[in-house]
Computed example of a mutant assay.
Amino acid sequence: MSESHENQTGVPYDVVVLGAGPAGANVADRARAAGLSVAVVERELVGGDCAYWACVPSKALLRPVLAVADARRVDGARQAVTGRVDADGVFARRNRSVSDWDDTRQALFLKSIGADLFRGHGRLDGPRRVSVTRDDGARQTLTARHAVAIATGSRPALPDIPGIAEARPWTSRQGTESSTVPTRLAIIGGGGVGIEMATLWQGLGSQVTLLARRRLIRRMERFAGELVAQGLSEAGVDVRIGVQVTALRRPDPQGPVTLTLDDGGELEADEVLFATGRTPATDDIGLDTVGLTPGSWLDVDTTCLVRGVDGQWLYALGDVNHRALLTHQGKYQGRTAGDVIGARAAGRPLDDTPWGDHATTADQHAVPQVFFSDP
Results as ranks from 00 to 15, higher is better:
D310C: 13
V237K: 05
G231E: 11
Q244L: 07
P280L: 08
G318D: 01
T260V: 07
A324H: 04
E234V: 14
W201C: 07
T303E: 13
L216G: 03
R307E: 13
L211W: 00
M220E: 15
T199G: 14
E226Y: 04
G265K: 08
G264M: 11
T279Y: 05
V300S: 00
T246E: 12
T279W: 00
G286L: 10
V228N: 02
R213Y: 00
F223P: 10
I285A: 09
G225T: 07
L259Y: 11
T289S: 13
P294K: 10
G277S: 09
D288S: 12
R214S: 15
L305I: 03
P251Y: 07
R278M: 13
G231K: 07
L200R: 15
T260D: 15
I285H: 13
I217T: 14
A224F: 09
V309E: 11
A324P: 06
S206L: 03
V306S: 03
E226A: 14
E234T: 14
R307C: 06
G225N: 09
D252V: 01
G308E: 08
L267G: 12
G291Y: 06
Q202L: 13
L227R: 13
L267M: 12
M197S: 12
L261H: 09
Q254Y: 01
W201R: 08
V257S: 08
M197A: 14
R219T: 15
V306W: 00
G286D: 08
A235I: 04
G295Y: 12
E268W: 00
A269I: 11
L305Y: 03
M220F: 14
A198S: 15
G190M: 05
L326K: 04
V243E: 14
P256I: 06
D263W: 12
S233F: 11
G265I: 02
G277V: 05
V193H: 08
G311R: 09
E196R: 04
T293V: 13
R278I: 11
L298M: 10
L259P: 11
T282W: 08
L292Y: 10
R214H: 13
G295F: 08
L305F: 01
D299N: 09
L185K: 11
Y315P: 01
Q312F: 00
G265Y: 11
L325Q: 10
L305Q: 11
D310A: 13
L185E: 11
R323I: 05
L248W: 06
L185A: 15
M197V: 15
S296T: 14
I187T: 05
L305A: 08
R215W: 06
V245W: 00
A212Y: 00
I217E: 10
G291E: 10
D299K: 05
V300Y: 07
F223T: 15
L185W: 09
R323S: 15
L326A: 09
V208L: 11
T303D: 03
A229P: 02
I195S: 04
T282I: 00
R218K: 15
L317R: 02
T276H: 07
D319P: 01
V257I: 14
A186W: 03
L298H: 06
W313R: 11
F274A: 06
R214V: 09
V208Y: 01
V300M: 04
D319L: 02
Q230H: 14
